[in-house]
Nucleic acid binder design. Structure first.
Length: 473
RNA sequence: GGCCCCGUCGUCUAGUGGUCCAGGACGUCAGGUUCUCAUCCUGAAGAUCAGGGGUUCGACUCCCCUCGGGGUCACCA
């Protein structure tokens, strides 16, 4: 049995969004699961569309999600180079083979002439086929015109690892362009050559390629190549579900999700379960679970919408599952500035209180700033509070003062002693917890919400707590 | 328009002829955890399985048609 080799072959024409990353993820999982190799190949044969810096961006995105490849343009490998623009001689060689075999020929038409053929077909409500205009005696190819594949039209039936059995008639087979007049190969040609040269065993790609697959099958035959296993992914749709998710309608850069405080493993689990599940009721998967359980034949065939709400839930789930030490490392860049001066151990304890409240790491400052800096008094928190708005000003002062006194008497300052003091305070003041505790919380944090009161005060410390409670008068 | 693919709660999905008047999760709503937010727990609403024909003793599951959605028909990938 040959080693499984999968590849992710993006073109460096922009950032990597969640739709693209899923293909990469599945290719990665298939390779890891089989103890095979995952290859990154850059398909940079369209110099007009190439975007400066996007190759680096692509690489950074894969690494951010932990999809480490074994061979690639930046790390090399046994089948280098991994950038198509560095492999032009290879395509040239394979093109020559087709020419020699009489299976490729120079396109003698001007672009305008081809365009005219196309318009005629459209006017006749027919699909355009170049081969209907195949020249009888094409000139020798000198590299300045497109080189076309001389196809052999026929019906195909083939198996797709995800889509199942597919078939088409001969009417979809055409003389597509192999080499462009600028000397670069087309995707259609280059990927087949490269997959063969790089001994790729599984071609995992999006469904936009499904209709050209019969043409690829035809080319494999002409080249005498055994075709790899084919797996076609269903599209990821936008939130409205009416279009393939694309950059134009809100598909976000995966690195933006990381910057916004999403955990890589949450992104990975969420994206994997967009169209795949293991058949049980398990909803979230760690990366190693995915490697163990993933299978192409359990990938669904219909398009799935990208639901941010669910992603948020998955992210919160992973945040809560993280050991505190690990979470501390992950939030390093998300602390508010004021926290950076605080001691590590203190930050750790704040984080512990915040952990179950975080949906994204980015929520951290809003949830914890009052532990590190003096909060800004905001009386609307009192006046708009259901329990507190009916309290007289003098009553508020009385309660805060009483709280100050009761807490000031404490010799030991911890959650338990504080809770005890608060409980006694309920009795002596005759107030309900909903009133008294809310009031104390607001005066000590000036935040719309905070962790449980005794824990908050314990962490704030006696000095800070008393100071904030004496602002009352 | 031709060709190809797809169609189960708002969303992600389980379901491969009977155990499904359809299960789980997100979201929503209600309640509980001495206060808020979150977590956690409990419960509720929510799908005539796109529609119509078949086949069958019996169809979400098989076949056909219709409708809806998507993809493709580039010297883009």
């Amino acid at each position: 049995m040959n080693t499984v080799r999968t590849r992710f072959a993006p073109s460096p024409t922009g950032f990597l969004h969640v739709g693209g990353i899923r293909t990469a993820l599945f290719a990665y999982l298939v390779a890891r699961q089989a103890n095979g190799k995952f290859v990154l190949r850059l398909e940079d044969t369209d110099k007009n569309r190439e975007v400066e810096g996007s190759a680096e961006h692509l690489i950074a995105s894969l690494k951010a999600l932990g999809l480490q490849y074994d061979e690639g343009p930046d790390i090399g490998g046994p089948y280098a180079p991994y950038k198509q623009s560095d492999r032009l001689d290879i395509y040239q060689k394979w093109a020559q083979r087709l020419i020699d075999a009489g299976r490729a020929y120079a396109d003698p038409y001007t672009p305008a002439e081809v365009q005219k053929f196309r318009e005629e077909a459209t006017a006749a409500k027919k699909a355009f086929l170049y081969r209907d205009h195949r020249p009888e005696n094409p000139p020798a190819w000198d590299g300045t015109t497109p080189l076309r594949f001389k196809c052999e039209p026929k019906a195909y039936a083939w198996h797709d690892e995800v889509m199942g059995d597919l078939s088409t008639g001969p009417e979809v087979i055409d003389d597509f362009i192999l080499m462009k007049s600028d000397g670069y190969p087309t995707y259609n040609f280059a990927h087949i050559v490269d997959d063969a040269e790089m001994e790729i065993t599984h071609v995992i790609r999006g469904q936009e390629f499904i209709s050209s697959t019969p043409n690829y099958l035809n080319l494999y035959e002409a080249l005498g190549l055994e075709r790899p296993l084919l797996a076609t992914m269903p599209p990821i749709m936008n939130e409205q579900g009416n279009k393939k998710l694309g950059k134009r309608d809100g598909a976000k850069d995966v690195l933006d999700y990381v910057r916004d405080g999403y955990l890589p493993e949450a992104l990975v689990s969420f994206i994997a379960t967009l169209g795949w599940n293991d058949g049980t009721t398990q909803e979230v998967f760690t990366p190693s679970e995915l490697i163990a359980k993933f299978s192409l034949d359990r990938v669904g065939r219909s398009g799935a919408r990208f639901d941010e709400k669910r992603l948020l839930w998955v992210n919160g789930h992973f945040i809560r599952e993280l050991p505190l030490d690990e979470l501390a490392k992950r939030v390093e860049f998300f602390w508010p500035d004021s926290a950076k001066k605080a001691e590590e151990a203190y930050r750790h304890r704040v984080l512990e209180l915040a952990q179950e409240r975080l949906k994204t790491l980015r929520d951290l400052p809003a949830l914890t700033s009052y532990f590190f800096e003096e909060p800004t008094r905001n009386d609307s928190l009192v006046s708009e509070n259901k329990q507190l708005k009916k309290l007289e000003e003098t009553e508020i002062t009385r309660l805060i003062t009483a709280a100050h006194e009761a807490l000031e008497r404490l010799n030991e300052w911890n959650q338990d002693t504080i809770q005890e003091a608060l409980n006694q305070l309920l009795e002596t003041t005759g107030q309900k917890p909903g009133t008294l505790f809310s009031l104390i919380r607001i005066y000590t944090t000036w935040s719309p919400f905070s962790p449980q009161l005794n824990g908050t005060l314990a962490l704030l410390g006696k000095e800070t707590t008393l100071k904030r409670l004496s602002v009352a008068q």
